[in-house]
Write a protein that binds this DNA or RNA. Sequence first.
DNA 1: ATGCCTTGCTTAGCAAGA
Length: 260
Amino acid sequence: MKFATWNVNSLNIRLQQVLDWLEANPVDVLALQELKLAQDKFPVDALNEAGWQASWLGQKTYNGVALISKQIPTNVVQNNPHFTDEQSRLIAGTFRSESDKKVRVIGGYFPNGQAPDSDKFVYKMAWLDGLRKWLSLELAVHERLVVMGDYNITFDAADVWDPATLEGTIHCTDQERTQLQALIDLGLHDGLRLCAQPDKSFSWWDYRDFGFKRNRGMRIDHILVTKAIKDATTAAFIDKTPRANERPSDHAPVVLEAAL
DNA sequence: ATGCCTTGCTTAGCAAGA
């Protein structure tokens, strides 16, 4: 089974790029973030015409998440049942592998946090507390669980183009990394690092100052998996090609393949 | 570096992203 996550920074702008990417990369589940469109503005017809199903949680202007797949998932959940949130950031669904095993998939757009002393950072921490609570319950009932999306957190210095200068800044604080580690400690694994990666492998590059061309980026988009999926993982990579598109998202897709 | 670029919302400049 193939899983992918991609922050598209406006699905209105990036719809054709998503359709093109799916045609070239027919994954089983693609999690999208930052749709930036209201629930009733989602381009479900265009996706259906291309042969794809979609479950989504929209929001005008900001946020918004979706799961795109060939299958119709069951038990779709929008946002975290254990955290009251006015923002649209989570979508979950249950899929079936080729060998008919149930696989739970959660797609998430984690709060940015803006700056370590801001109200938005406080919200980010509370949001992560709520997510951990929900994931602990999901993990108790799903042996095969994938949690993928834009985490807006780096694991460590290897995920940052200039770790010395950016130490302690947003996405690189100890508090955020402690929260990310707490999710790992529930029984999850960093999917990308299950496979060898080139040095300076990033999933996001700033639009400004030729960030992509100079590889000034961060790895903030992650695919976390349970042990059952970890043990079956055969490939994991960042597909940088769409970042070189005309009018690209500032994020690239992250992909994981597992023999399930 | 209170900058850079890209979105949406609204129609000129702000909020937000990361």
